[in-house]
Amino acid sequence: MLSIWGHQLFVNGDTDHAELTEMMGDLFIGHDMPEPPKEGFFKGLFGGGSRSLDREELFGESSGRASRTVAKHIPGPNDAIRERVSSATGEVNMAHQMVVERGEKLSQLEDRTARMMSEAENFSQGAHGLMLKYKDKKWYQL
């Protein structure tokens, strides 16, 4: 008995060897290789060796017409822009300084609160001790 891929075949002495090979079949079927793809921009950029890229080739007029949605630089009055930027920067710095000061004040407040809680606990223990000391005494025994 011959077992191939879970199928059992009974092989007798009179079975032809050619019949067995026809029953077994082919595991792989040969195919022709497809055409290699043409070299594109990204293949040239990321693979295929080093190639010098010219800025004009990538972004210039020879690369094609720019989209209408692309922003264009419009030069304006530089002094007004610088003044607005410096005032905005000053406001951001002032806000940052105020946040830092607020954080410092909050940490000081937290420390004072912890100290007050500790003092209150000490006072509570002292008052409880006095109460236990004078609990069973009358007013004339003091």
Rank of each mutant, 00 (worst) to 15 (best):
H73P: 06
G6P: 07
A71V: 09
I4D: 11
G64Y: 00
L130W: 05
S50R: 15
A127R: 11
H73S: 13
A114E: 14
S124V: 06
H17M: 14
M131P: 05
G40L: 03
T21S: 12
Y140C: 03
H17R: 13
E39L: 12
L53P: 03
M131T: 07
S3H: 09
G48S: 06
F10M: 07
V70R: 14
G48E: 01
E119K: 09
G25R: 05
Y140K: 04
D54H: 15
T113K: 01
Y134P: 03
G60V: 00
S107K: 09
M116P: 06
N93W: 02
M23Y: 10
E121T: 04
I74L: 08
A88N: 04
S67Y: 08
E39W: 14
L20C: 02
G49V: 03
D54V: 13
D79F: 06
L142E: 11
F123R: 15
H96T: 12
G129F: 12
A18T: 09
G64V: 00
G13A: 04
T69M: 14
P36Q: 11
A114R: 13
G48T: 01
E56V: 05
P37W: 02
S107Y: 10
A71S: 06
E83K: 13
S87T: 06
V99M: 05
S50W: 13
L20E: 04
D16K: 07
W139F: 11
S52I: 00
N122C: 05
